[in-house]
């Protein structure tokens, strides 16, 4: 199949970007989206032009590095799928495909389709440690976790930190990501001692990075490649409200002392 790509090209973080029209010829429907870009890049390199910069690592949908906005939808038209796992058979011959980077103040463009998502790393770091005994392996079943809590925590932990939720949100809000990170520890017994200080710290870090607020649009959950549920946004709200008005934590904060 032959495609027409409209790709965002930007030399570096400070340069003025623009859309470039690139023809992609003889694309196999079995290729993944990133493989298609690889082939296009070979052609660009041979023609003496600079290849399209994009992020990728595992190419099996687990690392969260890849991610571009394809025809207006982060990770493209296939629900529950990362860009690396998206196949060209979902596109039509002759189709125009518009490819843009994730857009948010907190995710500045580094080059072309690559953005700097270290804001997410700082939010996670703000979450701090959990208190857990070290040393010999704990006895099996010494700490009971209900099936429901285990399943829900696993659902939250499926978040790969790709940032598509931010890219899709009209407000560039990170509530789904932060909700998932706060919940997967907050649901488990090991996460209880720092539960309330963690939600404070992560929300403060989220706000400091300049993400927008949640207006309950739910675009985030619709594009999440791991189908992380918007229920975790509700949990994040409840945990923060609970921490401020009910729990008023007395545990140590995550910095020394």
């Amino acid at each position: 199949m032959n495609l027409v790509l409209m790709v965002w090209r930007q030399e570096n973080a400070r340069a003025q970007g623009h859309m470039q029209r690139i023809e992609a010829k003889d694309v196999s429907p079995d290729m993944s989206f990133l493989e298609m870009l690889d082939v296009v890049n070979e052609g660009l390199t041979e023609a003496g032009q600079s290849p399209i910069a994009f992020d990728h690592d595992c190419r099996e949908g687990i690392c969260g590095s890849c991610g571009v906005v394809i025809n207006g939808v982060p990770h493209g038209p296939q629900p529950g799928t990362t860009t690396c796992q998206l196949h060209m058979r979902h596109f039509r011959d002759g189709q125009v495909i518009v490819i843009e980077p994730f857009r948010a103040r907190a995710f500045p463009v580094i080059r072309d389709l690559m953005v700097d998502r270290s804001a997410f790393d700082r939010v996670i770091a703000a979450g701090g440690f959990i208190t857990s005994p070290t040393g010999s392996a704990p006895d099996g079943n010494a700490m009971l976790v209900s099936k429901h809590a285990a399943d829900t925590a696993m659902e939250a932990a499926a978040c790969i930190g790709c940032g598509a939720c931010v890219a899709a949100c009209p407000n560039a809000s990170a509530m789904l990501f932060v909700g998932a990170k706060v919940s997967h520890l907050g649901l488990l017994p090991q996460g209880q001692p720092e539960r309330w200080s963690r939600v404070h710290a992560m929300v403060a870090a989220m706000d400091a990075e300049g993400f927008g607020g949640c207006t309950n649009f739910l675009e985030c959950a619709a594009v999440c490649p791991k189908n992380v549920s918007s229920d975790f946004i509700g949990r994040l709200n409840r945990d923060l409200i609970g921490a401020v008005f009910l729990a008023r934590p007395r545990v140590a904060s995550n910095d020394a002392g």
């Binding site: 103040r105 009209p170 739910l218």
Partner: peptide
């Protein structure tokens, strides 16, 4: 705050879930 959270917008944008009323 939300206006500042995305200084450069999308050329092409598709909404999947949000309602007209919400936007």
């Amino acid at each position: 705050q939300e206006f500042g959270a995305r200084p450069v917008g999308y050329q092409n944008r598709r909404y999947l879930r949000s309602s007209y009323a919400a936007r």
